[in-house]
Design a protein around this nucleic acid. Structure first.
Lengths: 210, 210
DNA sequence: ATTATATGTGACACCGTGTCATAAGTCAAT
DNA sequence: ATTGACTTATGACACGGTGTCACATATAAT
């Protein structure tokens, strides 16, 4: 997290720094980004940077968390609109992100994030990283889910189910950039995989699939 | 890939370099690893290093590919032993890796790899990275799979199914190190998720699950 | 012996990092 | 208005890692 000092800064100075950071993290992934570039662009002295952030990771994760909040809000919304159907909510959100990023300034930041996705980045994009939010967010989602539509017997299975869908979802995001898929291809693959997830991968369970 | 020059080296010199690399990549993940440390440990001049590898990434991915081949072979074996039951094969292999790493010298390398997993690392661990192998490997696996047990209608669905199971598998590996799970916990979670995958996440499909 | 080709070597210029000593504000109390 | 306590600003600097390049040394081929 940024220090208090950063938040005490006049908004204009904060913004200039954030803009500079966005520019740098659009250019290259975290491990190639340089503080030198950011402070040059933001026209602040190097020493000041370290008054606000512990290092570039601190800034990066803060920034990523900020710009992913919109997507998280969208997920909540989708879940409500779809009467707690989690699969529809995931698909809607997937589409929202894929299409949204098209015009957005954040497209390249996401590209670099997905191509260098690790568990930290995944956590930030999935929950909101920062502690208090995390649990509340998760619980409020769990509460919105219509469990009747799901083939599960208890909370623990719901938890595992969420993990599964999240794994698959992130993997599909990554593939967009790795394979340079079009929106349509990406969505088609994702919908297909969700479909398979829903109906089950094995036919030991007497599914009625054609 | 290493240069020809590297492969022309006497085995002992190759080994010394590889050992030094293993030591460094056990200590820290790729982006923190330093060539300086490796060449010091291996007692080769810095200039020579660049005769053999383009940079530390080159060495790292080569190394990772080498040490993951054992696991890949194991997967093949499991698939055969389990009569093409891909789920059992995945579970066996998961167990093999989880238990195997316990005593192994490679444990920390894998830890650093999984905690910083990105699509490149995933590709190396999943297929064998290097081009010719990749397709052959994939095809030979596809051929070993008993499709009759699967709830799929064509090759394309099989492809998507593989992606799903791989996503989930890697995510479970990562969780071992993120959450510092015991072997038992890790395996239990994984088996549970595979179970859910097999029987399907939705109950729209008239599954007979209790 | 001569030429060509492959390999070895380490000093060097470059760049980014994080820190630290010092300066400069802010503000409340006397 | 001065003092003291605290917060914030600043940029020079030492450190460490990178990749390259000019030169040295093998090895092989004619």
């Amino acid at each position: 997290m940024p220090t208090q000092t950063f938040f005490h800064l006049p908004k204009s100075k904060q913004d200039k720094l954030i803009q500079a950071a966005k520019k740098e993290f659009s250019r290259v992934p975290l491990h190639e980004a340089s503080i030198a570039n950011i402070v040059k662009e933001a026209e602040i002295p190097r020493g000041s940077f370290y008054q606000y952030f512990e290092g570039k990771e601190d800034l990066y994760y803060y920034l990523l968390n900020e710009i992913s909040e919109e997507n998280n809000a969208q997920f909540h919304l989708s879940l409500q609109e779809n009467d707690g159907d989690i699969f529809e909510a995931f698909i809607d959100s997937f589409q929202f992100v894929v299409q949204g990023q098209k015009k957005q300034e954040h497209k390249k930041i996401f590209k670099n994030a997905f191509l260098n996705m690790n568990y930290k980045i995944e956590n930030i994009l999935a929950n909101n990283l920062y502690e208090e939010n995390r649990k509340n967010n998760y619980l409020s989602i769990i509460n919105l889910i219509n469990k009747k539509k799901l083939n599960i017997q208890n909370e623990e299975e719901l938890h595992q189910l969420m993990k599964i869908v999240l794994s698959v979802t992130f993997h599909n995001f990554v593939q967009i950039f790795v394979k340079e898929l079009t929106e349509q291809e990406a969505l088609k693959n994702y919908v297909k995989q969700i479909e398979l997830l829903k109906r089950g991968l094995s036919n030991e369970y007497s599914n009625t699939s054609s």
